[in-house]
Design a binder for these strands. Structure first.
Lengths: 66, 66
DNA sequence: TCGTTTTGTCAAGTATATTTTACAAATTTC
DNA sequence: GAAATTTGTAAAATATACTTGACAAAACGA
């Protein structure tokens, strides 16, 4: 399932996928795959993404997949 | 860093590591390693743990590792 | 319309999360 | 205090998160 909350939060910061990837020290493909969904990132990466986007885990990653 | 919040939440439910592991469909060693810390579980497993323990991601996995 | 940036996606390789098996120490229960 | 349960931990194997490189389609501004 697509992670639209994350995509929206990234847009709100005006970050490209590559900029967010650089901040989080991962590849652009990893960010793309997470936004696309059907992907299972590690909690540490989720935390890095949240901090880069000024969001919490619950705001970006809760309730996506039931 | 140890995840004491998770250990406390598990104790509050009176689950052994093995019982929680069974509910989450992972091995007991995985649960043990997460509580022990210096471990980086996937977000889907974190969500499964949270639901088993009636907690949210922010309550169990936020602010553990800075 | 052209050039630039952004994004989707794929294939092959590497790093690491998770499993399985196993044993001992610690804790609980009777 | 013995037996049963729980927990810590380790080594080897497997599954999968993540990387690198690459190309094309889409989006966007000049």
């Amino acid at each position: 399932m697509k992670n639209l909350k994350m995509k929206a939060a990234r847009a709100a910061k005006d970050f490209s996928q590559e900029e967010l990837a650089d901040i989080c020290n991962v590849s652009r493909q990893t960010i793309s795959a997470i936004e696309k969904g059907d992907y299972n990132p590690t909690i540490n990466l989720c935390i890095a993404i949240c901090k880069a986007l000024d969001k919490t885990l619950d705001e970006l990653f809760w309730d996506e997949e039931q």
